[in-house]
Design a protein around this nucleic acid. Structure first.
Length: 836
RNA sequence: GGGCGAGUGGCGGAAUGGUAGACGCGCUGGUCUUAGGAGCCAGUGGAGCAAUCCGUGGAGGUUCGAGUCCUCUCUCGCCCACCA
């Protein structure tokens, strides 16, 4: 392969010095770091300022992909930097190791899910270690291990005892491929997030977490998450989707109350029908006998439609009149009751007051079924213009009884109050966010710790009986119900209350439950008494920097926020937000497309490590794009990075004799010529690199600054004697590179005779006197166009710079015969002559 | 349909309202070499011999000065979407 030849030839060419052999030095240092324990964190040391750096932990799918490499490298560089800056750094890694793929692999290969999972973890652990990541391996967590899921079950009980976990029968999303139910968040465009297959609605008795209790707080707190990308907070805001309005109660002729939720109580005089969701509980009672067959057929059809069919906006409206009527409480008008599948049983009250004049959907429905359109709001200044489409803007009220003439925005408030006073309505806030469906009819997850007893009903397993262990005598291949039902040892269990024989809950928890609190367990992973020690969590939380893919913007990040709030409310934590700063890294692309097996454009991290080593991989993946943007993988650019590291190596090893650690620091004022320039560049680089990392981790510009620095160093002739300025430059270069290329830096640090580990060194400081050059280029503009450039001393008084500029022949050529009306001088930047 | 973000060389991308294209990839020429796909040196937005002119999706505007700010517009990407 050409890459291997490149390395061989490169090595040959520098054979006369000593060659850079990444594979050898990387292995050596990884072993050394592990043995020295220098990356372990003492979480009980709460005396220093702390920094908690966290990557979203991986699912052990088999092997790492480049997205992982990018994610973990970014976090690792941040963690290493903070450590050098003197923080007490926590940087852990673990495994989100429950989940469906393990079960599928078990069925296919006839091996237990645990075996498949642990062998993947072993392989991926080796890969992570080969990348030289600064993890405290002693605090790994595995969500599939009983010492972890015991506490996931504890979390369930905690929520259950606070009334935040409950079971109910509801129409839920069912994926045939997964053979289980899914949370709303796991349904994308009516399709399963994993399989892309249509999701069906089924009425099932399922467990939910009452995340809607926290809807308002989840929304309000977004304001304080200044360290999150706007994009993510916005997505969460849209997902929660708060609507302020009113619940108004219509009354059927037969007496049944039909509440509706509306954001437009001001349009209630325009109601010309009542539309119920097909699944609405009142449908049977409100259907006229002669309509029974037709209505039942419609409901049956709706049931068999997939989510995708039901929710496309382009579809024509369908519906059936029930043949009965209800009364509008505001004017006692009789309006017909219909069912239509554009009304959703899960939202609001499952019933909609139909106002065709002022709602686009209702307008389409009325047109289709020839229902009357009554206009109750007119545009100000354009009264009497005929309606061609729904008018959804505010305006002036018409045809609205006592409310006629009001501004429609005022009317919302007044009409809601009127409804409240008269007992047929109230103000109501509605969120789109639904409760989180957490039960799964699958094996490889944390069992829900509940026992059903004929006498006592639903009984939570007492805390001291946790964990409810996952049995091994299970037939994984059963579909449609939990495989746990097939375990002879699992199902039967004594009722914790009365001791008679009961049945265990056989559903397991959504793996997102496991990952909603893992960041807390990292702080205290070996605790056998509690999920974590609140005192430690108080010090370590929140996570200072969380890094991961934007695909978790809603699912994981909102569930974790919910957990944190719930734990906070029970005094388990001081904070109610888990992640202070969030960085969503972009995707790794190849040839402009997402890496995928089907496209055949996957780059395997193992190959890159074998060919170039971890430092090149780390350096490259940070180099070309800012971390938030997508990153285009380019093989030639990887080579370029390797060549650069070779050059760093050569530049330093070649001049080994000139580098000493015990030389006195250069004194800026005494320096002249190239030495002075080198010293300036060293300080500028330290300053620039530090600044770029601090401001949103712009590693791509960090790397370009380091390249400029090295380019200069390569041309510099330090001589054979110890050289203080050159030594200062090289020592600082190694420190700046340490977080990015930890092995190379460590190796050179040691070879040069540096004490201890480069990673234990303080982050370099810069000499602020030496940040400016001795000569500055000032631009001479005429009417804003660059005409000449001057070399002047920095901070030369404006008047003198202007004098010099006036003498510029090139500038004068453009000012000839014209009058200078204004001169603008920007110190150390430019002089602009405005001429007429 | 609604919301958000982005459009800069052949490519990835730099630019507190102040020299557009840093840094790199690629390419061109030279050098060293048995050889070069390594190293080193030089060049590289477009047009032009040159002076110079034109250039950040498009059209306007603000400003001494606009890739950057404002208005409109086009294209692409992402998110949400029959949520009442």
């Amino acid at each position: 392969m050409k890459d291997t030849r490149l390395i061989m030839s490169a090595e040959k060419s520098i054979l006369q010095i000593e060659s850079y052999q990444p594979q050898a030095i990387e292995k050596k240092w990884q072993k050394q770091w592990e043995e020295s324990g220098q990356y372990r964190t003492d979480t009980s040391d709460t005396s220093r300022r702390k920094y908690y750096a966290l990557s979203m932990f991986p699912y052990p799918s088999g092997r790492l992909h480049m997205g992982h490499v990018r994610n973990y490298t970014i976090t690792d560089v941040i963690a290493r930097l903070r450590k050098m800056q003197g923080y007490n750094v926590l940087h852990p890694m673990g495994w989100d190791s429950f989940g469906l793929p393990a079960e599928n692999a078990a069925i296919q290969n006839n091996i237990p899910p645990a075996q498949w999972t642990y062998s993947n973890i072993a392989y991926m652990t080796d890969q992570l270690k080969a990348l030289g990541l600064m993890y405290d391996w002693d605090r790994q967590v595995y969500t599939c291990r009983r010492d972890y899921y015991q506490w996931t079950q504890w979390m369930f009980l905690y929520l259950y005892n606070r009334g935040l976990a409950y079971k109910k029968e509801a129409p839920v999303n069912w994926c045939e491929e997964c053979a289980t139910v899914l949370a709303n968040e796991q349904v994308i465009d009516g399709e399963c997030w994993r399989h892309g297959t249509p999701v069906m609605k089924k009425n099932l008795n399922q467990w939910f977490f009452r995340i809607t209790d926290y809807a308002e707080r989840l929304l309000e707190n977004l304001e304080q998450l200044k360290g999150w990308p706007d994009k993510v907070t916005l997505m969460q805001k849209n997902w929660i989707n708060k609507s302020v309005g009113a619940e108004l109660v219509f009354t059927a002729e037969s007496g049944e109350k039909i509440p509706v939720f509306t954001t437009r109580p001001d349009t209630v005089f325009g109601v010309t029908a009542m539309v119920l969701a097909p699944e609405h509980p009142l449908v049977d009672q409100l259907t006229a006998p002669e309509k029974k067959a037709e209505v039942e057929a419609y409901r049956e059809a709706a049931r068999n439609k997939s989510e995708i069919e039901r929710t496309t906006t382009e579809r024509e409206k369908t519906g059936v009149a029930l043949g009965t009527f209800c009364l509008n409480p505001f004017n006692n008008e009789k309006v017909p009751v219909w069912i239509a599948d554009y009304a959703l049983v899960e939202y609001g009250t499952g019933a909609v007051m139909m106002v065709p004049a002022h709602d686009e959907r209702d307008f389409a429905f009325a047109k289709k079924f020839d229902l009357p359109v009554i206009r109750v709001i007119e545009r100000r200044g354009a009264v009497g213009v005929p309606l061609k489409e729904a008018y959804t803007e505010p305006g002036v009220m018409v045809n609205s009884g006592d409310f006629t003439g009001l501004d429609s925005e005022d009317a919302k408030e007044k009409m809601t109050r009127f409804a409240e006073e008269n007992g047929f309505g109230k103000r109501r806030i509605q969120y789109r966010l639904r409760d989180w469906l957490i039960s799964r009819q699958r094996y490889w997850g944390a069992p829900i710790p509940v026992i059903y007893c004929d006498k006592c009903g639903e009984v939570p397993v007492p805390e001291d009986q946790l964990p409810v262990e996952l049995p091994e005598d299970v037939d994984f291949s059963v579909k449609g119900r939990s495989p746990l039902e097939s375990s002879p040892t699992f199902v039967k269990a004594p009722c914790p209350k009365c001791g008679t024989e009961g049945r265990r809950e056989t559903d397991t928890m959504d793996t997102f439950v496991c990952s909603s609190w893992y960041y807390l367990r990292f702080i205290d992973p070996q605790n056998t008494e509690k999920p974590f020690e609140p005192g430690l969590v108080k010090y370590w939380m929140p996570v200072d920097q969380y890094v991961g893919g934007v695909e978790h913007a809603i699912l994981h990040l909102m569930y974790s926020r919910f957990f944190m709030m719930a734990l906070h409310d029970g005094d388990w934590t001081d904070h109610d937000e888990p992640f202070a700063n969030l960085l969503t890294q972009g995707m790794v692309l190849k040839d402009g497309a997402k890496m995928s097996k089907s496209k055949g454009n996957v780059v395997d991290p193992d190959d890159i490590l074998a060919e170039y080593g971890a430092d090149t991989a780390r350096f490259f993946i940070l180099s070309d794009s800012p971390p938030q943007a997508d990153f285009d993988w380019k093989d030639t650019a990887v080579e370029g990075c390797f060549k650069f590291l070779l050059r760093v190596w050569r530049t330093i090893v070649e001049h080994k004799d000139a580098i000493r650690f015990d030389l006195p620091l250069p004194i800026y004022d005494t320096l002249a010529g190239p030495e002075r320039e080198l010293y300036q560049l060293t300080n500028k680089t330290i300053h620039g690199v530090t600044k770029d990392i601090e401001s949103e981790f712009q590693f791509n510009t960090v790397i370009s600054k380091i390249r400029e620095f090295v380019n200069f160093l390569g041309k510099y002739e330090p001589g054979r004697e110890p050289n203080a300025v050159f030594s200062h430059a090289v020592v600082n270069l190694l420190k700046l590179l340490a977080p990015i290329t930890p092995h190379l830096s460590e190796e050179l640090w040691q070879r040069l005779g540096g004490e201890g580990s480069v990673h234990e060194q303080p982050w370099p400081e810069f000499d602020s006197n030496a940040l400016t050059s001795d000569v500055i280029e000032v631009v001479v503009q005429v009417n804003g166009k660059v005409r000449d450039k001057l070399q002047v001393a920095p901070d030369l008084p404006n008047a003198e710079v202007e004098q010099l500029a006036r003498q510029s022949e090139k500038a004068q050529a453009h000012m000839d015969g014209k009058q200078v009306v204004k001169v603008i001088t920007v110190p150390n930047k430019l002089v602009n002559f405005v001429v007429k």
